[in-house]
Nucleic acid binder design. Structure first.
Lengths: 341, 341
DNA sequence: CTATTTTCTTAACGCGCGTAAAGTTTTTAT
DNA sequence: ATAAAAACTTTACGCGCGTTAAGAAAATAG
């Protein structure tokens, strides 16, 4: 196989003029079938691909899409990122994945770097409370951005996420229906805005059912939720701070820590006769199926959230990067009954 | 803040000529301090950044570095990717993270796309057994590549990883010293070459200690290790196929599934009096601390592996993309004693 | 203060491709 | 078959920056 320098050379070898070859690479269907065949034939013989830097230099809109998540070591984000990536690729875009690793500084740097990439659009799951709001606002002014997972009021052209009320109402109602109404277990200063919405939803649902809400806040910050849940639960269990025999964790990763604490303390969790505690949670984390006991939780509609986020971004791009009104789309969640409650 | 079109305009505004400004952006220390100050002053006033596409068009070597992992939903890879990313950034490079999501097709597509990015170098943790060897070989011929985590014989300019023998010898010796020698629990057809090396190491160590190795192979393929470990363990426990009271899992994710199965079957795992099974594993997965019971395992030296991999890649880049000899660097591992064994 | 070195400016070319205009060929419609 | 439409070729310019060569200015040495 000869090495091809540039499109000119490849065009000559394929017997087609360069402008037509250029057209082909932008949209293979934009050239006649016979022409396409000749180019693709040459492609097999010569292994040429356009220089992406030269290509993107002149284009107003690159085919790049940025995907930014707050914490990739959380398999939930890795999972949803996969969905997003694949949807972008299927639509002919080139996704680039970034993780802020829980740090504001990194989130800002990522957005900064993203700008010089001139992406067609960005799918952003912000850090939340610790995000630099003004930095994100600035970014969104320059780049078509759709927020997902964590909503920041007014930022981005649209938001797609899961309905936190749906999460909580399902778990609370289920626990109430089958036993005692749950206490709510969460971090004192949650990093994620969803946590606040879940707490509010919990209070609403409990009051709607005629029960008094009972919230347990544990110390700890950052993204080591399991550790925080573990330590917090140990403390609560030690101090006998549990006023109910059922607990709803704000999210699965806290619950994983909670379950570990229960196990260490010899507290049996579940709805069997010999159990003294029931624990449910929200998210349906990829590992929730393998906790001990397996975790009853409410599941994100990964598929719909991802699909809709990407669709929305494409609409936004086709619409020139602006929407008339900022929309917020919330998908209902699905109760997953397992052994912990 | 005025919007700046290009370097020419920015140069004029900063009062410095364009070639000098160009020099500054390639290496700020290559211009006189007073000049640097004037440029940086202008940078604060005007918010300009070079067009990365125009910049990279002419450069032989971009400042891009590709990081490719086989499965990002495994927090182990997310974690090591973070180390790698940060080391690259610290060295002034721009890392791009990709996950093959367990699929050969995707791995090939990633390498394909990476080529048109003309990266200075690539850090590649290949899928392993299901990698397309010839595709990777081709890629490595064109792009300076350092393999990490999973070794593919002869591919890439160097390999950096953890010493599988060190993993297994530590866990086996510990278990033997404090109880019965363990059986080895693994997938029948492991995706990862490390699995094979761990099995071999297990056999060697057991024979060296004068014990008969006992390997339990369970069905299942793909990257859903927890699920495979869970199902496999259930089957083994049902059939009473366990000939020892101690088991060493090939990796932590299998062990997580195994522990879940034990829990469901009411089998107490650990080294306490009332336990009937001891379970250890390898990797020190981020969640190993929160399993029930917490998992005794051998830990990768994340930090050293990541640091050395990046260092090696930089040497490779500075060396023009070729090494005289392909080196394989294996870091010893560290036994982490927890409750499961 | 002059000689030398360093750093800068000016001018100009090239990278690989997008894109537009004008003319030519092929396809489709009638 | 002929006219109209579609697709192509040729030519040429521009994108934003890297890079080089020649000359001017500034810093350093003695």
């Amino acid at each position: 196989m000869t090495k091809i320098k540039n499109m000119e050379e490849f065009a000559t070898l394929s017997g087609i003029s360069r402008p037509t070859v250029s057209k082909y690479f932008q949209d293979p269907d934009s050239v006649r079938a016979t022409t396409r065949a000749r180019i693709e034939d040459a492609l097999e013989r010569f292994d040429y691909r356009p220089n992406m830097y030269a290509v993107n230099q002149n284009r107003k809109l690159t085919k790049n899409i940025g995907i930014v998540v707050p914490y990739l070591a959380d398999p939930f984000f890795a999972e949803i990122a996969r969905y997003l990536e694949q949807s972008c690729i299927a639509a002919g875009y080139r996704p680039s994945l970034f993780s802020a690793h829980g740090e504001q500084k990194l989130e800002n740097e990522i957005l900064d770097g993203l700008q010089s990439m001139k992406p067609a659009g960005v799918l952003l799951a912000p850090l939340g409370r610790i995000s630099d709001r003004s930095a994100i606002e600035k970014f969104c002014a320059n780049v078509p951005t759709v927020l997902f997972d964590s909503n920041l009021d007014g930022l981005g052209a649209a938001f797609i996420g899961s309905d936190n009320h749906s999460f909580v109402s399902q778990t609370v109602e289920y626990m109430t229906r089958t036993g005692e109404p749950p206490s709510f277990f969460e971090m004192r200063t949650p990093a994620n805005p969803n946590a606040n919405k879940r707490r509010k939803a919990y209070v609403e649902v409990m009051e709607g059912l005629g029960f008094e809400p009972h919230i347990i806040k544990v110390d700890g910050k950052g993204w080591a939720f399991e550790e925080i849940g573990h330590k917090g639960a140990l403390k609560v269990l030690e101090e006998r701070g549990l006023k109910t025999d059922s607990v709803l964790c704000s999210n699965d990763r806290l619950a994983i820590g909670f379950l570990a604490a229960c196990f260490e303390q010899g507290i049996r969790v579940g709805r069997k006769e010999d159990c003294t505690l029931r624990l449910a949670s929200n998210d349906d984390h990829p590992f929730a199926k393998f906790t001990c006991p397996s975790l009853t939780t409410a599941a994100h509609d990964y598929d719909n959230v991802a699909t809709r986020a990407v669709e929305t971004l494409f609409e936004l791009i086709e619409n020139g990067g602006k929407f008339e009104n900022r929309t917020e789309t919330l998908f209902p969640t699905r109760l997953v009954l397992r052994d912990s409650a």
